[in-house]
Design a protein around this nucleic acid. Sequence first.
DNA 1: CTTGACCTTGACCCTGAGGGCAGGGTTTAG
DNA 2: CTAAACCCTGCCCTCAGGGTCAAGGTCAAG
Lengths: 122, 122
Amino acid sequence: MRISDLAAEAGVTVKAVRYYESQGLLKPRREANGYRTYDAHDVVVVREVKALLSLGLTAEQTYPFIECLRAGNGRADVCPASLEAYRTRIAEVDRRIAELTDLRARLTDLLTDAENWRTRQL
Amino acid sequence: MRISDLAAEAGVTVKAVRYYESQGLLKPRREANGYRTYDAHDVVVVREVKALLSLGLTAEQTYPFIECLRAGNGRADVCPASLEAYRTRIAEVDRRIAELTDLRARLTDLLTDAENWRTRQL
DNA sequence: CTTGACCTTGACCCTGAGGGCAGGGTTTAG
DNA sequence: CTAAACCCTGCCCTCAGGGTCAAGGTCAAG
Protein backbone atom coordinates (compact mmCIF):
# COMPACT_ATOMS: atom_id res chain seq x y z
CA MET A 1 0.00 0.00 0.00
CA ARG A 2 1.02 3.58 -0.58
CA ILE A 3 1.32 6.42 1.82
CA SER A 4 -2.21 7.82 1.50
CA ASP A 5 -3.69 4.36 2.03
CA LEU A 6 -1.62 3.88 5.15
CA ALA A 7 -2.57 7.32 6.42
CA ALA A 8 -6.26 6.67 5.82
CA GLU A 9 -6.22 3.26 7.46
CA ALA A 10 -4.33 4.52 10.48
CA GLY A 11 -6.32 7.73 10.78
CA VAL A 12 -3.50 10.23 10.36
CA THR A 13 -2.33 12.58 7.63
CA VAL A 14 0.24 11.83 4.98
CA LYS A 15 2.35 14.56 6.49
CA ALA A 16 2.30 12.82 9.85
CA VAL A 17 3.44 9.55 8.31
CA ARG A 18 6.40 11.24 6.71
CA TYR A 19 7.18 12.89 10.01
CA TYR A 20 7.18 9.56 11.85
CA GLU A 21 9.57 8.25 9.25
CA SER A 22 11.87 11.23 9.77
CA GLN A 23 11.89 10.29 13.46
CA GLY A 24 12.99 6.76 12.62
CA LEU A 25 9.68 5.10 13.52
CA LEU A 26 9.00 3.76 10.03
CA LYS A 27 11.28 2.45 7.30
CA PRO A 28 9.18 1.92 4.18
CA ARG A 29 10.56 0.31 1.07
CA ARG A 30 10.54 2.33 -2.12
CA GLU A 31 9.06 1.50 -5.49
CA ALA A 32 11.15 2.03 -8.61
CA ASN A 33 9.59 5.46 -9.00
CA GLY A 34 10.51 6.47 -5.47
CA TYR A 35 7.06 6.01 -3.92
CA ARG A 36 7.01 4.64 -0.37
CA THR A 37 5.44 1.21 0.15
CA TYR A 38 3.90 -0.03 3.39
CA ASP A 39 2.39 -3.24 4.70
CA ALA A 40 -0.25 -4.11 7.30
CA HIS A 41 2.38 -4.11 10.03
CA ASP A 42 3.04 -0.43 9.40
CA VAL A 43 -0.63 0.34 9.97
CA VAL A 44 -0.32 -1.10 13.47
CA VAL A 45 2.81 0.95 14.10
CA VAL A 46 1.24 4.20 12.97
CA ARG A 47 -1.90 3.57 15.03
CA GLU A 48 0.29 2.91 18.06
CA VAL A 49 2.33 6.06 17.52
CA LYS A 50 -0.82 8.10 17.10
CA ALA A 51 -2.28 6.70 20.33
CA LEU A 52 0.92 7.35 22.27
CA LEU A 53 1.29 10.89 20.98
CA SER A 54 -2.27 11.57 22.05
CA LEU A 55 -1.21 10.45 25.54
CA GLY A 56 1.37 13.22 25.47
CA LEU A 57 4.47 11.15 24.83
CA THR A 58 7.04 12.61 22.48
CA ALA A 59 7.87 10.85 19.24
CA GLU A 60 11.14 9.80 20.80
CA GLN A 61 9.39 8.28 23.80
CA THR A 62 7.34 6.03 21.51
CA TYR A 63 10.51 4.25 20.46
CA PRO A 64 10.40 1.44 23.07
CA PHE A 65 6.80 0.65 22.12
CA ILE A 66 7.64 0.32 18.44
CA GLU A 67 10.65 -1.83 19.25
CA CYS A 68 8.36 -4.00 21.36
CA LEU A 69 6.10 -4.47 18.34
CA ARG A 70 9.03 -5.16 16.05
CA ALA A 71 10.23 -7.79 18.52
CA GLY A 72 7.13 -9.76 17.58
CA ASN A 73 4.81 -8.89 20.43
CA GLY A 74 1.14 -8.57 19.69
CA ARG A 75 0.94 -5.55 21.96
CA ALA A 76 3.34 -2.62 22.08
CA ASP A 77 3.09 -2.09 25.83
CA VAL A 78 3.89 -5.47 27.29
CA CYS A 79 7.66 -4.99 27.27
CA PRO A 80 9.42 -3.70 30.40
CA ALA A 81 10.62 -0.57 28.61
CA SER A 82 7.06 0.26 27.63
CA LEU A 83 5.80 -0.12 31.18
CA GLU A 84 8.61 2.14 32.31
CA ALA A 85 7.64 4.71 29.67
CA TYR A 86 4.05 4.65 30.98
CA ARG A 87 5.26 5.22 34.53
CA THR A 88 7.54 8.04 33.43
CA ARG A 89 4.68 9.70 31.61
CA ILE A 90 2.35 9.31 34.60
CA ALA A 91 4.96 10.99 36.77
CA GLU A 92 5.25 13.83 34.25
CA VAL A 93 1.50 14.29 34.24
CA ASP A 94 1.40 14.32 38.02
CA ARG A 95 4.10 16.96 38.14
CA ARG A 96 2.29 19.03 35.54
CA ILE A 97 -1.02 18.80 37.38
CA ALA A 98 0.68 19.95 40.56
CA GLU A 99 2.25 22.89 38.71
CA LEU A 100 -1.04 23.89 37.19
CA THR A 101 -2.87 23.57 40.49
CA ASP A 102 -0.36 25.87 42.11
CA LEU A 103 -0.60 28.20 39.13
CA ARG A 104 -4.35 28.35 39.44
CA ALA A 105 -4.09 29.31 43.08
CA ARG A 106 -1.69 32.11 42.21
CA LEU A 107 -3.99 33.34 39.45
CA THR A 108 -7.09 33.41 41.64
CA ASP A 109 -5.10 35.25 44.32
CA LEU A 110 -4.00 37.83 41.79
CA LEU A 111 -7.50 38.19 40.40
CA THR A 112 -9.05 38.62 43.84
CA ASP A 113 -6.42 41.13 44.79
CA ALA A 114 -6.89 43.16 41.64
CA GLU A 115 -10.67 43.09 42.05
CA ASN A 116 -10.37 44.28 45.66
CA TRP A 117 -8.08 47.07 44.63
CA ARG A 118 -10.63 48.23 42.08
CA THR A 119 -13.41 48.10 44.65
CA ARG A 120 -11.44 50.24 47.06
CA GLN A 121 -10.81 52.79 44.33
CA LEU A 122 -14.50 53.22 43.50
CA MET B 1 20.25 52.47 30.74
CA ARG B 2 21.31 49.93 28.20
CA ILE B 3 19.89 46.53 27.44
CA SER B 4 22.04 44.47 29.78
CA ASP B 5 21.27 46.82 32.68
CA LEU B 6 17.58 46.51 31.97
CA ALA B 7 17.83 42.75 31.71
CA ALA B 8 19.74 42.49 34.99
CA GLU B 9 17.35 44.77 36.87
CA ALA B 10 14.30 42.97 35.57
CA GLY B 11 15.78 39.52 36.00
CA VAL B 12 15.62 38.33 32.39
CA THR B 13 18.12 37.76 29.61
CA VAL B 14 19.13 40.28 26.96
CA LYS B 15 17.67 37.91 24.40
CA ALA B 16 14.32 37.98 26.16
CA VAL B 17 14.28 41.78 26.15
CA ARG B 18 14.87 41.85 22.42
CA TYR B 19 12.14 39.26 21.99
CA TYR B 20 9.64 41.35 23.96
CA GLU B 21 10.50 44.26 21.70
CA SER B 22 9.90 42.13 18.62
CA GLN B 23 6.46 41.41 20.06
CA GLY B 24 5.73 45.11 20.39
CA LEU B 25 5.89 45.21 24.19
CA LEU B 26 8.83 47.64 24.34
CA LYS B 27 9.85 50.54 22.13
CA PRO B 28 13.29 51.69 23.25
CA ARG B 29 14.97 54.78 21.85
CA ARG B 30 18.25 54.32 20.07
CA GLU B 31 21.57 56.00 20.68
CA ALA B 32 23.50 57.39 17.72
CA ASN B 33 25.46 54.14 17.56
CA GLY B 34 22.29 52.07 17.39
CA TYR B 35 22.30 50.88 21.01
CA ARG B 36 18.89 50.59 22.67
CA THR B 37 18.18 52.90 25.62
CA TYR B 38 15.68 52.21 28.38
CA ASP B 39 14.30 54.00 31.44
CA ALA B 40 12.94 52.90 34.81
CA HIS B 41 9.46 52.51 33.35
CA ASP B 42 10.74 49.80 31.04
CA VAL B 43 12.02 47.84 34.02
CA VAL B 44 8.48 47.70 35.38
CA VAL B 45 7.17 46.56 32.01
CA VAL B 46 9.73 43.79 31.66
CA ARG B 47 9.13 42.56 35.21
CA GLU B 48 5.42 42.47 34.48
CA VAL B 49 5.87 40.57 31.24
CA LYS B 50 8.16 38.11 32.96
CA ALA B 51 5.61 37.53 35.73
CA LEU B 52 2.77 37.07 33.27
CA LEU B 53 4.71 34.66 31.07
CA SER B 54 5.51 32.61 34.16
CA LEU B 55 1.75 32.38 34.72
CA GLY B 56 1.50 30.79 31.31
CA LEU B 57 0.12 33.73 29.36
CA THR B 58 1.45 34.20 25.85
CA ALA B 59 3.38 37.32 24.96
CA GLU B 60 0.35 38.49 23.04
CA GLN B 61 -1.90 38.03 26.06
CA THR B 62 0.29 40.36 28.13
CA TYR B 63 -0.66 43.24 25.86
CA PRO B 64 -3.64 44.50 27.91
CA PHE B 65 -1.50 44.55 31.05
CA ILE B 66 1.20 46.63 29.41
CA GLU B 67 -1.39 49.00 27.97
CA CYS B 68 -2.83 49.31 31.47
CA LEU B 69 0.59 50.35 32.74
CA ARG B 70 1.10 52.75 29.85
CA ALA B 71 -2.27 54.31 30.68
CA GLY B 72 -0.69 55.52 33.88
CA ASN B 73 -1.88 52.89 36.33
CA GLY B 74 0.44 51.87 39.13
CA ARG B 75 -0.59 48.27 38.66
CA ALA B 76 -0.90 46.40 35.40
CA ASP B 77 -3.84 44.26 36.47
CA VAL B 78 -6.41 46.78 37.66
CA CYS B 79 -7.88 47.44 34.22
CA PRO B 80 -10.97 45.50 33.08
CA ALA B 81 -9.07 43.92 30.18
CA SER B 82 -6.46 42.61 32.61
CA LEU B 83 -9.05 41.07 34.88
CA GLU B 84 -10.60 39.44 31.86
CA ALA B 85 -7.21 38.08 30.82
CA TYR B 86 -6.80 36.55 34.28
CA ARG B 87 -10.20 34.90 34.06
CA THR B 88 -9.45 33.59 30.59
CA ARG B 89 -6.21 32.11 31.79
CA ILE B 90 -7.85 30.52 34.83
CA ALA B 91 -10.37 28.89 32.52
CA GLU B 92 -7.54 27.61 30.32
CA VAL B 93 -5.77 26.15 33.34
CA ASP B 94 -8.96 24.48 34.52
CA ARG B 95 -9.48 22.94 31.12
CA ARG B 96 -5.89 21.75 31.03
CA ILE B 97 -6.09 20.23 34.50
CA ALA B 98 -9.23 18.36 33.49
CA GLU B 99 -7.52 17.08 30.35
CA LEU B 100 -4.49 15.93 32.30
CA THR B 101 -6.61 14.28 34.97
CA ASP B 102 -8.43 12.31 32.32
CA LEU B 103 -5.13 11.51 30.64
CA ARG B 104 -3.72 10.21 33.89
CA ALA B 105 -6.67 7.88 34.32
CA ARG B 106 -6.19 6.53 30.82
CA LEU B 107 -2.48 6.01 31.46
CA THR B 108 -2.99 4.14 34.71
CA ASP B 109 -5.62 1.97 33.02
CA LEU B 110 -3.21 1.13 30.24
CA LEU B 111 -0.40 0.44 32.69
CA THR B 112 -2.55 -1.84 34.84
CA ASP B 113 -3.80 -3.66 31.79
CA ALA B 114 -0.31 -4.20 30.41
CA GLU B 115 0.94 -5.38 33.80
CA ASN B 116 -1.92 -7.86 34.10
CA TRP B 117 -1.24 -9.16 30.65
CA ARG B 118 2.36 -9.82 31.61
CA THR B 119 1.33 -11.56 34.79
CA ARG B 120 -0.95 -13.90 32.89
CA GLN B 121 1.82 -14.75 30.45
CA LEU B 122 4.25 -15.77 33.18
C1' DC C 1 -1.97 9.14 -27.76
C1' DT C 2 -3.46 12.69 -25.06
C1' DT C 3 -5.87 15.01 -21.60
C1' DG C 4 -7.11 15.67 -16.91
C1' DA C 5 -7.71 14.19 -12.19
C1' DC C 6 -5.30 12.54 -8.64
C1' DC C 7 -1.12 10.99 -6.30
C1' DT C 8 3.79 11.34 -4.75
C1' DT C 9 8.13 13.44 -4.08
C1' DG C 10 11.29 16.80 -1.74
C1' DA C 11 11.75 21.46 -0.18
C1' DC C 12 10.50 25.65 1.95
C1' DC C 13 8.24 28.62 5.67
C1' DC C 14 5.34 28.70 10.01
C1' DT C 15 4.18 27.98 15.03
C1' DG C 16 6.27 30.22 21.00
C1' DA C 17 9.69 32.00 23.72
C1' DG C 18 13.56 32.51 23.39
C1' DG C 19 18.98 29.85 23.30
C1' DG C 20 23.16 29.66 20.88
C1' DC C 21 26.37 31.08 17.68
C1' DA C 22 28.71 34.00 14.05
C1' DG C 23 30.60 38.11 12.57
C1' DG C 24 31.26 42.72 13.17
C1' DG C 25 31.04 47.47 15.46
C1' DT C 26 31.60 50.13 20.14
C1' DT C 27 32.98 51.25 24.60
C1' DT C 28 35.64 51.06 28.62
C1' DA C 29 39.42 49.79 31.76
C1' DG C 30 44.20 49.12 32.25
C1' DC D 1 47.06 50.97 22.36
C1' DT D 2 44.96 46.89 23.30
C1' DA D 3 42.01 43.55 25.21
C1' DA D 4 37.81 42.63 27.60
C1' DA D 5 33.27 43.49 27.75
C1' DC D 6 29.40 45.09 25.53
C1' DC D 7 26.17 45.94 21.55
C1' DC D 8 24.21 45.04 16.93
C1' DT D 9 21.81 42.02 13.22
C1' DG D 10 20.87 37.69 11.42
C1' DC D 11 20.60 32.75 11.05
C1' DC D 12 19.52 28.02 12.83
C1' DC D 13 17.29 25.21 16.57
C1' DT D 14 13.35 23.45 19.47
C1' DC D 15 8.16 19.89 18.56
C1' DA D 16 4.72 17.72 15.79
C1' DG D 17 3.45 18.42 12.16
C1' DG D 18 0.28 22.17 8.71
C1' DG D 19 0.34 24.75 4.49
C1' DT D 20 1.94 25.43 0.09
C1' DC D 21 4.77 24.76 -3.93
C1' DA D 22 6.87 22.85 -8.27
C1' DA D 23 7.98 18.90 -10.55
C1' DG D 24 6.99 14.53 -11.88
C1' DG D 25 4.31 9.81 -11.73
C1' DT D 26 -0.21 7.02 -12.34
C1' DC D 27 -4.45 5.83 -14.11
C1' DA D 28 -8.68 6.32 -16.13
C1' DA D 29 -11.65 8.09 -20.06
C1' DG D 30 -11.89 9.73 -24.61
